[in-house]
Write a protein that binds this DNA or RNA. Sequence first.
DNA 1: CCGTTAAGTATACACTTGTACACATAAATA
DNA 2: TATTTATGTGTACAAGTGTATACTTAACGG
Lengths: 210, 210
Amino acid sequence: MSIRLEKKQLTRQSLMDAALAWVDEGQDFSAISIREVAKRAGVVPTAFYRHFTDMEDLALNLVDELSIALRRLMREARQKNQQAGHMISDSVRLYVAHLLAHRALFRFMSQALSGGSATLRRAVRIEMQFFARELEADLQAMKLLPHLSAQMRENISQLVIYTVAGITVELLDIPANQPAQHEKLIHKTIAQVQVVMLGAAHWKSVSPVQ
Amino acid sequence: MSIRLEKKQLTRQSLMDAALAWVDEGQDFSAISIREVAKRAGVVPTAFYRHFTDMEDLALNLVDELSIALRRLMREARQKNQQAGHMISDSVRLYVAHLLAHRALFRFMSQALSGGSATLRRAVRIEMQFFARELEADLQAMKLLPHLSAQMRENISQLVIYTVAGITVELLDIPANQPAQHEKLIHKTIAQVQVVMLGAAHWKSVSPVQ
DNA sequence: CCGTTAAGTATACACTTGTACACATAAATA
DNA sequence: TATTTATGTGTACAAGTGTATACTTAACGG
């Protein structure tokens, strides 16, 4: 890459990192200003416009980073869980590890899911849908829940995502130095996902429980 | 109530309504200013301080309104579903009805759950926990899932809440005039809750699915 | 090597923001 | 009825905001 582009990418990343750092401090993404993000990136306010038109524009680029993080997570999960005896608990633990390694990014995600502009919300939603579809594909590949329709399997996958989204919000509010509380949450979530999979295994198109 | 207090409550409510209206327009709660909320309430900026110290203070009072709405929802659910053949689907439908009747309040809730200040997040979380505990109490009263420990029943209740939280975010992004899409989501959610309850019914302390 | 280009700077302007302070006025109280 | 009190007003100011415009200067391409 040319020197000029390289430098450009550098400040661009500084700007995005500055916004993420703000979120990581517990501040709301929608409450940061262009000037503030520029200041923290060590750059003059107007330089911001060389990279993004808007804070929303920057946010959409953060979604791309999120996307990469999620894909990496999935790849790693597939490598580790191929023969699988503790598939669910391993996956949840792996997710939590990634979550803690990218706190700011996941915080941004859960904020953008219900805050932010309509387009931003949509972008995050699409990422989560993609994640759910991949999960469905894995279930199919592993010949799990073969008695269910593909649609129902995707529905189940989405349910698992929602469950995991629940732990996400809770974990992000626990200080990083409280592993005991982390463990509690993890166990709870593992049980929840297991209940979901157990229910799916017994599902027969029309459930006896209504 | 004295005339003075009555008038005070009136402008107080105007301020809270103005903030909710802002959220209902799709704007972020954390992005509204004291001046803006005062303007929309038809009152001078400094009058705001006669009622709230902060926007966060106002937000915490909105949580109280939310709390009332949730309690009303639970009471109604109990009255309607006593003998119950379609308990799950009826409950989900009732929830969606309340959600649509108080769009702004639920939007505020889902924003505050992951956005906002730590205390605000905590306040909303506590409301949801309360909701989950009530659900557990109902399960117990109806002698549903009697083979589970109280803790596991609460865990299941929380799982149901998360599931419903999922539909909440999705529903709020569908224009109000698209009942067909609403129906789709409702059916999906009903199925999800049924899967959860089915899994809970088959749960035997250590799940065969791992 | 030298003119061109584009990333970052400097300055400027019109707004909006939170909040302090002194004030008006209607309700409460004595 | 006279006095006090509290809700809402009007004005003011320093600080922060988005963004337009003209600029420097280092890398690029012929």
